[in-house]
């Protein structure tokens, strides 16, 4: 039985090994190489790429990347947690319809959807006109090429990914627990914080992972709807590759980004293990 289960995981494992782990390792490896001004890799080992990162004034970009990713995650959760609850309480039929609606945008190419936002947010675009007409904006204000635009499109892009794990967690949640909580005297707020949110905890963790990590690596969204003042790390990496022709430096920044994402994930993984272990000990004593 054990061997069978292992065999079942092998294809995905191999796929990830060949197309993710090895390339990532190569990128890290390249980051320790030197290169000439034409972008040709030199056969020397050096940490010059990392040293040069220090001089690139990356701090604002790093902070912006983390900030935008955090905001995206929080906003997605704030929108998706109630939506997932609401969806899971509807009739089966309605749930299926909503799930379908949720998937429909994916039938349109991602790039096209981002460009559509560019049209919407354009100074002569629909949204701008509406907001000016309603008196929220001056004629001279800009929507496109701002951090706000990037955040808006990030949320737009990742909301479905946050909704799915939360919806699935809500579907597995035993709603009589809410009856029990209310029966024992909880207010609605207490029900949410003490019963419901802990109950869908794993869904929240998954939602955070599937939103925060890709958001950290965003490239195309800030590239299209963002301006020079709303660049994220992904744009910097692309710039090092395509404009500066400095592949080791791009590799160094990629490595840094991977580290930033991996560390919190590892910490949470270790935490979960120790939690499970603690529980087991409790049973044994």
């Amino acid at each position: 039985m054990r061997r069978n289960e292992f065999a079942l995981t092998m294809p995905s494992f191999l796929w990830l090994a060949v197309f993710f782990i090895i390339p990532s390792a190569l990128i890290i490896l390249i980051s320790f190489r030197g290169s000439d001004s034409y972008g040709v890799l030199l056969p020397v080992w050096t940490v010059k790429a990392y040293q040069s990162l220090a001089g690139m004034h990356l701090m604002p970009v790093i902070l912006r990347t983390v900030r935008l990713s955090l905001y995206t995650t929080v906003i997605c959760l704030l929108l998706a947690v109630p939506a997932a609850y609401g969806m899971s309480r509807m009739s089966r039929r309605m749930q299926n319809i909503l799930l379908l609606i949720l998937v429909v945008p994916f039938w349109t190419n991602f790039l096209i959807r981002i460009y559509a936002w560019k049209v919407l947010l354009h100074p002569d675009g629909f949204i701008k006109h509406c907001l000016v007409w309603a008196g929220f904006l001056d004629q001279g204000a800009t929507l496109l090429y701002t951090e706000g635009a990037v955040l808006l499109v990030l949320v737009y892009t990742y909301l479905p990914f946050a909704l799915l794990p939360l919806y699935s967690a809500a579907g597995n949640f035993d709603f009589t627990l809410l009856d029990a909580g209310r029966d024992l005297g909880s207010s609605t707020l207490q029900l949410v914080t003490r019963v419901y949110l802990p109950g869908i905890r794993q869904g929240i963790i998954n939602a955070v992972l599937v939103v925060f990590i890709p958001a950290m690596g965003s490239y195309i969204i800030p590239e299209i709807v963002g301006g020079p003042s709303s660049e994220m790390l992904g744009n910097k990496i692309a710039r090092y590759v395509f404009v500066d022709r400095n592949i080791p430096r791009a590799g160094a920044l990629s490595g840094f980004l991977i580290l930033m994402i991996l560390l919190p994930s590892l910490v949470s993984l270790v935490n979960r293990d120790s939690l499970a272990k603690g529980r087991k000990e409790l049973v044994q004593t």
Binding site: D174, T176, L177, D179, A180, G181, R182, D183, L184, G185, S186, S187, V195, P198, G199, R201
Partner: peptide
């Protein structure tokens, strides 16, 4: 009276214990 203000408590069919 709302449920949480009634001097009444319930033992649910599936117990509805909080798993966490």
């Amino acid at each position: 009276l709302p449920s949480h203000k009634r001097p009444v408590n319930t033992v649910f069919q599936n117990y509805a214990l909080f798993p966490h």
